[in-house]
Simulated assay, not measured.
Amino acid sequence: MRKLIMGIVEFREKMLPQYAEQFSKLALSQAPDALFITCSDSRVVPDLLASTHPGDLFTMRNVGNLVPPATAEGVSTGDLSEASAIEYAVLVLKVANIVVCGHSECGAMKALSTRNAKLKTPNLDKWLCHANNAAFRLEHEGPLDDRLKPHDQLSQLNVLVQLEHLMTYPIVRQQVTAGALVLSGWWFDIATGDMYAYLRTSRSFEIIDRAMADRIIARLAARAR
Rank of each mutant, 00 (worst) to 15 (best):
R2V: 13
M6H: 10
V9G: 03
R12F: 10
E13N: 07
K14A: 10
P17V: 02
P17G: 01
Y19T: 00
F23V: 00
S24G: 05
A27L: 06
L28H: 05
S29K: 09
A31D: 08
F36T: 05
T38P: 00
D41E: 06
V44M: 05
P46H: 02
D47N: 12
L49A: 08
L49Y: 10
H53S: 06
H53L: 05
P54H: 00
P54C: 00
D56S: 04
F58C: 02
T59Y: 01
G64M: 03
A70G: 05
A72Y: 01
E73D: 13
E73C: 05
G74P: 07
V75Q: 10
D79N: 14
E82F: 06
S84Y: 09
I86Y: 03
E87Y: 12
Y88A: 04
L93Q: 03
I98D: 06
H103T: 14
S104M: 11
L112C: 12
T114Q: 12
T114N: 13
R115E: 14
A117N: 12
A117H: 11
K118Y: 07
K120R: 14
T121P: 03
N123E: 15
N123M: 15
N123K: 13
L124Q: 08
C129P: 12
H130A: 06
H130N: 11
A131P: 15
A131K: 00
N132I: 12
N133P: 04
F136A: 05
R137D: 00
L138E: 03
L144Q: 03
R147T: 13
P150V: 01
D152E: 09
N158T: 14
V161S: 00
P170H: 08
I171L: 15
R173T: 09
Q174G: 04
Q175H: 08
V176P: 09
A178R: 02
L181T: 03
V182P: 00
L183C: 06
L183Q: 05
L183P: 01
W187K: 03
F188I: 09
I190F: 08
T192A: 12
T192C: 10
D194K: 14
A197S: 15
A197E: 09
Y198K: 04
Y198L: 07
L199E: 13
R200L: 11
T201R: 14
T201D: 13
S202I: 06
S204Y: 05
F205A: 03
I207C: 11
D209N: 12
R210I: 15
R210Y: 09
A211W: 05
A211K: 09
I216L: 12
I217A: 07
A218Y: 07
R219K: 11
A222L: 07
R223T: 02
A224G: 01
